[in-house]
Simulated assay, not measured.
Amino acid sequence: MSKEFNEVHLNHFNAQEGAYSVVTERESKIDSQITITGKEKTIALEHFGEENIHKGPAKNNKKLANKEFNLFPSGEVISLNIVFPKPKKKEVRIYLNKEKFKPKTNDIWFIFKRENKIWIGSYNQNQWDAISQENSSQITNDVSISDETNNSDLSKEIKRMVDTAFNTAKNADGSLTTSKKKIKDAESFTKKSLFEYIEQLIETQKGKCALTGLTLFYDGNHTDDARRVSLDRIDSNGHYEKGNLQVVCKFANNWKGANDNAEFLRLIRLIQNQNG
């Protein structure tokens, strides 16, 4: 069964996304093929384009069936056949090649994206387990800070913003049913680097909301939830990336919605002028 990479795997392989599963005896010794499912299948189809995957036996269209992968860890470019073997069904298979890519029974085979390239490889069970043992502390929390800082109210709020950003990016499909399309990828950050970047933003903004200039509130220093710190994308159609993030009051983020900074500030000025 296909499983999606967690934060430890993403860091280990320096991957944007990835998935893995256990190679069965039938796949390795009898059929010499792997049926890809779940996230594995999604990664492959999105990279190559479903319309570019041959439907039917590979021998019927060897050129279309043959696709290039980067072999982990060397980066060597190898060619493997990947097809919809039964045209009327959604099953996708990658055919193994003993000279290029031939994992053994019970090995963990994986597929991932890195810098617009698709990678493939395998580890034995001990190698795979070693990834988690080396980085087990990162599975649930990629943010590593001192005990003193970890207990501070502001640090807890920053961690909340980090978790919210990653959850939003993970759950978004890039085409929300709203008046504007929102792209919410967070591929340019790990949780740790985003935590540190938000710290820098708050320091640069001198603890003020980037939109309203009001002092930012956080758990432990306020009773006004509307002014609680909130992470906002300057261009709501852009990504969670450096240069497109600011820390604002919760109410300002809610009011801004899918608008960009300029439009939101224009509306704020209209209110100020009306009341001035």
Rank of each mutant, 00 (worst) to 15 (best):
S2R: 09
K3N: 10
E7P: 14
L10N: 11
H12Y: 06
N14D: 11
Q16S: 13
G18S: 14
S21L: 09
E25W: 07
E27K: 09
S32T: 07
I34H: 10
G38P: 05
K39S: 10
E40Q: 03
K41M: 08
K41V: 01
T42G: 04
T42C: 05
I43W: 04
F48N: 09
F48H: 07
H54W: 07
K55D: 08
G56I: 03
P57R: 05
P57C: 07
K62L: 15
L64E: 12
L64S: 13
L64P: 07
N70H: 13
L71P: 12
G75Y: 06
I78A: 08
L80S: 15
P85W: 12
K86S: 13
Y95M: 11
Y95W: 05
N97P: 15
E99H: 12
E99K: 06
K100Q: 13
I108W: 12
F110V: 07
I111C: 14
K113T: 09
K113R: 13
E115L: 14
W128Q: 03
A130E: 13
S132V: 07
S132P: 06
Q133D: 10
S137Y: 05
Q138E: 11
N141V: 05
D142N: 06
V143W: 10
I145F: 10
I145L: 06
S146V: 01
D147W: 03
E148A: 04
T149W: 08
L154A: 06
K156D: 11
R160E: 04
N171Y: 03
A172Y: 08
G174C: 04
G174W: 05
S175P: 00
K180F: 00
I183D: 08
F189I: 11
T190R: 14
Y197S: 00
E199S: 01
Q200N: 14
K206S: 12
K208V: 01
G213K: 02
L216F: 05
L216H: 01
F217K: 12
Y218P: 06
G220F: 10
N221S: 06
N221P: 02
S230C: 13
G238S: 15
K242D: 03
N244E: 14
K250N: 13
N254E: 05
W255P: 02
G257V: 08
E263G: 02
L265Q: 03
R266N: 08
L270C: 04
Q272W: 05
N273Q: 04
N273H: 03
